[in-house]
Design a protein around this nucleic acid. Structure first.
Length: 346
RNA sequence: AGAGGUGGGUGUUA
């Protein structure tokens, strides 16, 4: 069991959920750690429902949850709420309340990790009041808890509150980490606060965070969201290793601005930096072409990337292609795409 | 430490 549990955990993190299930299934005796690891594996793959079922099953088998298990349960519930969104009735919220009551009863709710997990779960359920109650009730607030609260305000469209919270963090001398930067920059992008973006940019450089991939990408997001895109190539020159997500964030901004030329320049820069290109890049390049009416170019990129085995074309790509042809009134090609669609349309 | 909390890019409504 000491070998199999890390193994299934590994499988879960690699996305090999079937293998993880196999390992879990062959365990003769499942202790709390194994159950928790399997739940975590489901969570990693966004299978909140399965994780929650496992949580119930575990207790039928007479195994009681501990703090770590509860964290996984709350994560699972958060995933459920996130995927439920428009579709349903708030059943995730009801499950969440029940889980919350249960872990309070067990005395786990005061655990720092559990508390943060509960907070995030309520945020995904859209329950602002519960979120604030949990945050105020936390005995000790570490950076992750503050970050979770920042993210919660973000999720709940409370852009200004996010910035107020940031102020409070500084007043209370909370340690800011790269996660804090990312949350705040996302808020800046959301509310279009250029001034704060600049402040954070400075703070990030000062703290040495700007080289962290998640931070540099979010900086691009933030500047883009403020309609103040810095010259991406200048910015990228300051980075040691601009990664795929960084370039994609640039593409996203340019594509949103309808600047197809800039998008193509980015593509070239990516080639120079020998960065890979993936399906997300393709959606943005196509969108760029579509917005600018560059039919031939769009098609060319599509075929080019279609030939690349490492890029899996999905329905979004076809959607944009249809849009591209729709804008120039080429219904012939629209129908032929629809006829030859290699997957089911949504 | 055999399991755990927050955080980075993706279309259509031009």
């Amino acid at each position: 069991i000491l070998v199999c549990t890390p193994l299934l955990s590994m499988y879960g993190k690699c996305g090999s959920i079937v293998e993880a299930e196999d390992v879990f299934g062959t365990l003769p005796h499942r202790d709390i750690v194994a159950w928790t690891a399997m739940m975590s594996a489901y969570n990693e793959q966004g299978q909140g429902e399965k994780a929650l079922k496992l949580y119930g099953l575990m207790q039928i088998y007479g195994v009681s949850p501990n703090e770590l298990t509860c964290v996984c349960a709350f994560q699972a519930c958060a995933i459920l709420a996130d995927t439920e969104k428009v579709a349903k009735n708030g059943s995730a919220a009801r499950i969440g309340h029940a889980l919350h009551a249960d872990s309070s009863f067990r005395g786990f709710a005061s655990d720092a990790h559990v508390g943060t997990a509960i907070l995030s779960m309520y945020a995904k359920c859209g329950a602002l009041e519960e979120v604030e109650n949990v945050f105020n009730g936390l005995l000790r607030r570490d950076t992750v808890a503050w970050n979770a609260m920042l993210t919660a305000y973000m999720d709940l469209q409370q852009g200004l509150n996010t910035l107020f919270l940031y102020k409070e963090m500084r007043q209370q001398c909370v340690t800011l980490d790269d996660g804090t930067m990312v949350c705040l920059l996302q808020a800046c992008s959301l509310i279009g606060s250029l001034e704060t973006t600049r402040q954070l940019h400075f703070a990030a450089v000062f703290a040495g965070y700007e080289q962290i991939p998640s931070v540099s990408s979010t900086l691009v997001d933030a500047y883009g969201g403020c309609g103040n895109m810095v010259d991406a190539s200048t910015f990228s020159n300051e980075l040691c290793e601009p990664d795929l997500v960084f370039w994609t964030a640039c593409l996203c901004v340019y594509s949103g601005q309808g600047d197809a030329m800039a998008s193509m320049v980015i593509l070239e820069e990516m080639k120079l930096a020998s960065n890979k290109v993936d399906e997300v890049v393709l959606t943005l390049v196509l969108a760029s072409c579509s917005h600018t009416g560059l039919v031939a170019e769009g098609l060319e990129y599509f075929y080019l990337m279609n030939a690349d085995r490492s890029i899996s074309i999905n329905l979004k790509h076809y959607g944009i292609l249809l849009d591209l042809f729709g804008r120039v009134g080429d219904f012939k090609r629209i129908f032929s795409i629809l006829e030859e669609l290699p997957m089911e349309a949504d």
